[in-house]
């Protein structure tokens, strides 16, 4: 498997945006970013049991004066719904980077419902949604999302499309 360059560039962009806490539920598409976060002792990398924990963490981080990012897979968006009311009601920044499943080239039928429901579910909870399918646009999209989230106090999600991260391959 060839290693794409965009996760390293995305990591640098998050550092430039002032992110200090990186919360995640692991996903193959976030593997590199998670490794980099753990390797940087100036960052607090927090492994979660479920994605909604990351919403509370982001709120606490902001109250304490730190910026954070939440890394998750599209299936985890469904776990976040009620928790999203917290940053929305308090107008506290939330930046989510979401790797997509259940769309472009998906093999597993069980991923389809949440994958197709990811954007409408986020939008129903007043999250601003950007999407990127082209490796060359990952950094600029993350930068735009971070600016809107941190400067305007909104919840912003970047969907990293399956065309970008590659559909998971199952060998029969």
């Amino acid at each position: 498997m060839n290693t794409p360059a965009w996760p390293d560039a995305l990591y640098e962009e998050l550092l430039a945006a002032g992110v200090k806490q990186v919360a995640y539920v692991p996903d193959a598409g976030h593997r590199r970013l998670i490794e980099l976060a753990h390797a940087n002792h100036h960052l607090k990398a927090v492994v979660l049991t479920t994605e909604e924990e990351g919403i509370g963490l982001a709120v606490g981080a902001y109250l304490g004066g730190e910026r954070s990012v939440l890394l998750l897979q599209s299936s985890g968006v469904g776990n976040c719904i009620n928790a999203l009311s917290l940053p929305a009601e308090c107008r506290i920044p939330l930046l989510m980077l979401i790797t997509m499943r259940g769309e472009f080239g998906e093999f597993n039928p069980w991923q389809i419902a949440m994958g197709q429901g990811t954007r409408p579910a986020l939008e129903a909870m007043r999250v601003i949604v950007y999407r990127v399918d082209d490796a060359e646009r990952v950094v600029e999209t993350a930068r735009a999302a971070a600016t809107v989230a941190f400067e305007t106090g909104r919840s912003v999600a970047v969907l990293l499309g399956q065309r970008l991260i590659g559909a998971k391959v199952f060998r029969k």
């Binding site: 200090k20 981080a61 304490g64 730190e66």
Partner: peptide, 21 residues
């Protein structure tokens, strides 16, 4: 910081604060 919703989130709000402060 009083929570009025987001049931189940209180401990995690605390952890984010503890990391920051």
């Amino acid at each position: 910081f009083y929570l009025w919703g987001a049931m189940g989130s209180a401990a995690m709000v605390g952890l984010g604060l503890a990391n920051a402060q």
